[in-house]
Amino acid sequence: MGQEKAVKGSLFEGIVVAGYADHGGYINCTGPSIKYTFAPKSSILFGFMPSLKLREDKVDAGKPKNSLITPTLGLGLTAVFRHMAIQLPAFYNAKTSTSDGKWKLGIGMGYKF
C-alpha cells in the first residue's frame, strides 16, 4: 500500500541535528513546522528550530565577549530520508554597535529517532 502525499502541521518530529553556521557550530531539534510527506519515511519540513549555537568570539584583550554557548531560534528546511536528516537553517544575528542585523545561513546533518 502506497502512502498518500500529505501536508500537515507538526509540533515535534524527534530529529536532532548538528551543523555549521556563522563561523561556529549548532545543535538543534526540529520544533513546530509544516510537514510535507512525499514517500514512505521521506518528508520535508519547514519550521522553527530551537538551537544552541556554539561559537567563540575573537576579540581584543580587555573587551567583553559573548558566551561560548548561546540559545537561539532558527528557521528553515529539514529533509528526512528514513533516519537521515539534512538541514538548511537560517539564524538571525541582532544588530549591535559594531555590526548590522543579518540572517546567516547554515547546513547540518542529523538523525531522526
Rank of each mutant, 00 (worst) to 15 (best):
G47T: 01
I107V: 15
A90M: 14
D57N: 12
K35G: 07
L88N: 05
F81P: 01
A6W: 06
M109A: 15
F91Q: 03
S97D: 15
N93A: 12
A94P: 07
T98Q: 12
Q87E: 11
P40M: 06
C29Y: 14
L105E: 10
K102S: 08
N66W: 13
T96K: 06
K58F: 13
Y92I: 02
S51I: 04
P89H: 02
D100G: 11
V7G: 03
F38R: 04
P32L: 14
K104C: 10
L73R: 01
W103S: 14
K8G: 13
K53I: 14
R55M: 09
I15N: 03
S43K: 04
L45P: 01
N93V: 09
L52V: 14
N66R: 15
P71Q: 02
Y26K: 02
F46D: 05
V7K: 04
K8I: 03
V59T: 14
F12D: 03
I69F: 09
S33M: 02
T72N: 10
L73Y: 01
A39R: 12
V80S: 04
N28H: 12
T37A: 14
F91P: 00
A94R: 08
F12P: 00
L52C: 13
W103K: 13
G19W: 00
T72Y: 01
M49Q: 15
K65Q: 10
A90I: 08
A21K: 00
E13G: 07
A6T: 13
I27R: 04
Y111R: 12
T96G: 13
K65C: 06
S42M: 13
R55C: 04
G101M: 07
S42P: 03
K95N: 05
W103Q: 06
L88Q: 01
G25Y: 07
P64S: 11
K8F: 15
K58T: 14
I27C: 04
R55H: 15
L88F: 12
F46W: 08
L75D: 04
H23Q: 15
Y111Q: 10
K58A: 13
W103M: 15
I34Y: 05
G2Q: 08
T72V: 10
L105T: 13
I15Y: 00
V7E: 05
T30Y: 04
K102T: 09
V80P: 00
N93D: 10
L45M: 12
S42I: 06
L88A: 15
K35P: 04
Y20N: 02
V7F: 13
P89Y: 02
L105G: 15
M49T: 08
S97W: 11
A39K: 15
F12L: 09
V16T: 10
S97V: 14
S10P: 03
S42T: 11
G14N: 01
R82E: 09
V16P: 00
G19A: 01
T78C: 08
V7Y: 06
V80T: 09
I107C: 11
A79I: 07
K41R: 13
G106R: 06
G9H: 04
G25A: 11
L52Q: 07
D60F: 15
S43I: 01
F12C: 05
T30C: 01
K112M: 10
T37K: 14
I27S: 01
G14H: 02
P89D: 05
L77P: 02
V17H: 00
E56S: 13
K104W: 08
I107Y: 11
I107K: 05
M84E: 03
S51Q: 03
V17K: 00
C29K: 09
L11P: 04
I69W: 05
G110Q: 05
F113I: 06
F113G: 06
N28A: 08
D60T: 10
T30E: 07
